[in-house]
Design a protein around this nucleic acid. Sequence first.
DNA 1: TATAATAATGAGAATGATTATCAATAGTAA
DNA 2: TTACTATTGATAATCATTCTCATTATTATA
Lengths: 157, 157
Amino acid sequence: MPGRWGKGPASWWHGEFKGCGYRITIPRQIILKVLEESSGHLSAEDIYLKVYKIYPAIGLATVYRTLEILVNMGLVSKFDFGDGRARYELIQDIKEPVHHHHLVCTNCGRIIDYTDFLEEEIELIKKIEKKLSAKYNFEIKNHTIQFNGLCDKCSNK
Amino acid sequence: MPGRWGKGPASWWHGEFKGCGYRITIPRQIILKVLEESSGHLSAEDIYLKVYKIYPAIGLATVYRTLEILVNMGLVSKFDFGDGRARYELIQDIKEPVHHHHLVCTNCGRIIDYTDFLEEEIELIKKIEKKLSAKYNFEIKNHTIQFNGLCDKCSNK
DNA sequence: TATAATAATGAGAATGATTATCAATAGTAA
DNA sequence: TTACTATTGATAATCATTCTCATTATTATA
Ligand SMILES: [Mn+2]
Ligand SMILES: [Mn+2]
Ligand SMILES: [Zn+2]
Ligand SMILES: [Zn+2]
C-alpha cells in the first residue's frame, strides 16, 4: 500500500480517525496493520487470530468494535458471502478506491476478486446510479455486485 | 401469480418438487402459499408467523428446512441485507425470472426493488458473465446487484 | 511532566438466528 | 391397507455477534 504513509510515525488513517473523535490505540493500530498486510475476505476471527500473534492481550470484542468503526468510516468493506460470518476487507485507496466485484463459488466458497471491468461496466454503473437516484430520490453511497456459481474445480466435480 | 396453475389441484411446483424426491406436505404447501401471496423480503420468522395463522402446528425448523430446499432448487432467492437475518423471496417465474435488483437504505433498512433496467444493463450483464466465465472458467448461475445509500426520508433527516 | 476526564479495553455473559437431534407422524407406492 | 421412510415439531445445541462492566490507557490541559 504505497503512498499512504507520510514521513512521520502517524499512519495515513490517524488524521481521519482523530478527526472523528476516536483515539489511536495499540489494538486499533495492530488491527489496521493486519488488514493492510492481508489479502481480503477475512472474518472477524481471522483478524483476531492474526492480531493475537502480535498482541496476545487482544479481545475479540475489540476486533468487532474496531471493524464496525472502520466500516462506518468507509475504510473497510463488509461482505456476507453466505457462510454465516461476515468478511472484511480494507478499501485500498480512499480517494480513488480500487473497486472490485466478486465471483462466489456456491459449492466450495471460493471467492474471486475481479477488477478488470469492461470500460462499459463502469460507465453503466454511473448511469444507473444517476437514474436510480433521480427516480427513487435515493442517495447512493456504494454498490455490491456479485456473481454466484461454480468455480473451475467444482464444476469439473 | 397467473399462468402457474393448471386446472388440477396440483400447484406449479409439485412436479419439480416430486421430481427431486421431495414429498408434498401440508407445511410445505402452506409455506409456498404464503410466499406466493406475500411481497418479498420475508425473514424466516415472518414466514413462520404467517404460516402459523393458517396452520398453528407449524414448527420454525420446518420453515428453515423448507426454505433451504426451495433455495437449492432455485425457486426462492435468499438475501442478506445486513440486519442479521436472512430474507427470502419467491422467484416469480422460473422460466423467465422477473429479475430485479435492490436499493438498500443503510439508515432505516428500507428495501426498494427495481426492475426497470436500462436495456443496456441487461445486455452488459450478459456480456460480463460471458467474459468472466471464460477468464476464470467459472460457471455463473446468478448474480446479485445492490446499491446502498440513504432513502428519501433518511437523506432529508 | 503530572493530572483529570473519559474513551477504550478485555473477560465473560447474553443474545438471537440458525442448525442438529430424535421420537412421533404422515406421505407414498404397492 | 400396509410397509417404508421422509418429514415433522419440540427442544437442545451452535455459534457469530453484541452487551455489560470494572479496569486501563489515551488525550488534552495545567
Ligand atoms: Mn474482495
Ligand atoms: Mn427483492
Ligand atoms: Zn468451488
Ligand atoms: Zn431510510
